[in-house]
Design a protein around this nucleic acid. Sequence first.
DNA 1: TAAAAAAGAATGAACATTCATTTTTTAACA
DNA 2: TGTTAAAAAATGAATGTTCATTCTTTTTTA
Lengths: 192, 192
Amino acid sequence: MAKLQKSIDKRNALVGATIELVNNNGFHAAPMSKIAKMANVSPATIYLYFENKQDLVNKVYLEVKSSFTDYAFKTYTDDMSVKDGFELIWKRIADFKLKEREEAMFLAQCDNTPMIDEPSRNEGIKHLQPLLELWERGKKEGVIKKFSNYILYAYTINPLSFLMLMQNRGVFQLTENHIQEAYKSAWNSIKV
Amino acid sequence: MAKLQKSIDKRNALVGATIELVNNNGFHAAPMSKIAKMANVSPATIYLYFENKQDLVNKVYLEVKSSFTDYAFKTYTDDMSVKDGFELIWKRIADFKLKEREEAMFLAQCDNTPMIDEPSRNEGIKHLQPLLELWERGKKEGVIKKFSNYILYAYTINPLSFLMLMQNRGVFQLTENHIQEAYKSAWNSIKV
DNA sequence: TAAAAAAGAATGAACATTCATTTTTTAACA
DNA sequence: TGTTAAAAAATGAATGTTCATTCTTTTTTA
């Protein structure tokens, strides 16, 4: 009498292949047959792990998003000053985008296209809670401007995606010096 | 003996349909058959105006990009102060993104995915020349920080795309007040 | 050895592009 | 001005391919 024992390696291979193929071509140009081939698996096997293509891509999105925010907030605690907390989180996000380029590109693609369905997208947004709370605290303490959180996000965190995209396209090389410049821009744009 | 006289109306309809369908679904989910139907034209007719689908989308991209930068730089002249010039350009860009939502969404989609081929992408970048020259001047005059142009772009202009995307997804409503906040963020992040 | 897991081949739908005709436009001339 | 025929423009249907998903069979596991 067998027990349900699907291979975690196969699932990981599928997730990795999905990320790589979607990065290169986008959702609709990442066929299930290629994903299967890259994961060394039969196309039919994908359907043992995921309901269909949309489900596959939703789940990959949520897992990558989790791994991103886990990394971003790992060393942050809410007894830090707003300034220190922001610097810490910002730099860890930059770090993630530089070190985990494939994953970061995948998230950027998901966030900028209608690839992910709305329930999964909303689920993904929840992971940013610690940052939103930090901003609320900063506004209450009078440390950062009382701007909408969307403006704060747009001018501090999101620009990192643009820089990463340019770097990944080979348009320019992002150095430690650029990261420092970018951090200064980010902080200047919101500090009181 | 007839003369070449293809209908400009049909071509415009095709361009408009391409923008609308790509916005909703992305390049690969905007089939030629649907583009044709939306433009009230036979699928075969598309091939009288464009070589193939890639050519269609490249050309639409370059035309929209032109219309965008024409609007952005229309009232700018290089005898303005750097501060005034930046404010003018920034606000006209915001204006375009609010008024021409479909076109702005289309550009954002093109700039964030591998949808456009590289030659056309490089062609599109050239249209930003006046802004880059303004920044160079600002750095020379000591008015703005000596940051890389990519950083300057990422923290001043590009965030508008994020705000527009959130607005178009119905996540929040971008008001005149937000625009003013966003402009302040943008300028704070680069001014000396 | 029985049930789960995996596979490869099969299915049917959707797609980009081309083909064979039809319709419209043009301009030379009656 | 009105007629006509040649060329351009436009079409709907056909073609061949690619894809997501399912079906049937084989392999692995406990």
